[in-house]
């Protein structure tokens, strides 16, 4: 019985609360399981939705930028180029928008039960990761159809790209989630911010087409650019632009720390606000 002593006090200081997160790992699993299950139960096409969206976008962008404007992405064929960027971008944007709204969506539970609040945005991100893995399967199919050459280093670079995207999505998502609880009209700015970030990401164009080097470095602050750079490297065989990676990793770390700090600082009062 001595194991379960809890001291309740007015909140002070800052801690990550990792130990407590570990204690609640089963709840984490159940939240993720619920969201995945409900998402695919409610739709007629189910899991196909996760695949159709990037495929449709791939067709449109291939038609526009490869056939009409002829963006040069050699040695990567444009459909492969854009599909890879799209699934990684979707991982980021779906994570951020779902995590951002997750606290409001689960307000009824937050108001009634205690658990580490961080579970909620994190499980939203895992749901997006599930979609991404489905997308990755399609990507592999297309890359076999197009007979796209690839280096074995993909085994290292693809997971690194995914990890970087997840960390960036975590930081941004938790920050937005906390802001959303406090300022209810913040949610309306999220789609706009994501739209802006999409065009600032090298999804449909390679960052190399940007002529001004200062602009390239500004764009590199967007963590998705570094992630896509890592993701495409094994297919392009050209050297990685290390400055983009360095800037992206640094900004990812800063965003995550800010997001996590703000979330942990405000979470005690979520039940009073939600």
């Amino acid at each position: 019985m001595e194991k379960f002593i809890t001291h309740i006090q007015p909140p002070k200081g800052f801690s990550l609360g990792l130990k407590e997160l570990w204690q609640y790992r089963e709840l984490f699993y159940f939240f993720t399981w619920r969201d995945i299950k409900v998402k695919y139960k409610q739709t007629y096409l189910g899991i196909l939705w996760a695949l159709l969206q990037p495929l449709g976008m791939m067709v449109i962008f291939t038609f526009l930028f490869s056939k009409t404007w002829k963006i040069d992405t050699t040695p990567i064929q444009y459909p492969i180029f854009v599909l890879g960027g799209l699934i990684l971008w979707n991982l980021f944007s779906v994570s951020v928008s779902h995590a951002g709204e997750s606290m409001i969506r689960n307000a009824n539970i937050i108001n009634k039960i205690y658990f580490p609040r961080l579970i909620i945005p994190c499980s939203s991100i895992l749901v997006a990761l599930f979609d991404f893995l489905m997308g990755l399967l399609i990507f592999i199919v297309f890359f076999l159809i197009y007979k796209q050459p690839v280096s074995w280093t993909a085994i290292l670079y693809v997971p690194a790209a995914v990890l970087l995207t997840l960390i960036a999505a975590f930081g941004t998502g938790t920050f937005f989630a906390a802001l959303n609880v406090k300022y209810r009209d913040f949610r309306y700015t999220i789609p706009f911010l994501l739209q802006f970030l999409f065009f600032a990401s090298q999804v449909i164009y390679p960052l190399q087409v940007v002529q001004q080097s200062w602009l390239k470095y500004v764009l590199a602050v967007n963590p998705v650019n570094a992630a896509i750079e890592l993701f495409r490297y094994p297919f392009s065989f050209s050297p990685v632009d290390m400055s983009i990676i360095a800037i992206g990793v640094t900004s990812t770390m800063i965003i995550s720390l800010i997001g996590l700090y703000y979330f942990r600082k405000t979470e005690a009062y979520f039940a009073d606000l939600a």
């Binding site: 002593i5 809890t6 309740i8 009634k112 039940a271 009073d272």
Partner: peptide, 20 residues
């Protein structure tokens, strides 16, 4: 007591798991 909201003053010690 179920830790849904923090107190402003004082403290509470709970010796056991709480089901709310």
């Amino acid at each position: 007591i179920s830790r849904i909201t923090p107190p402003t003053t004082g403290s509470a010690i709970i010796r056991g798991r709480v089901g709310s």
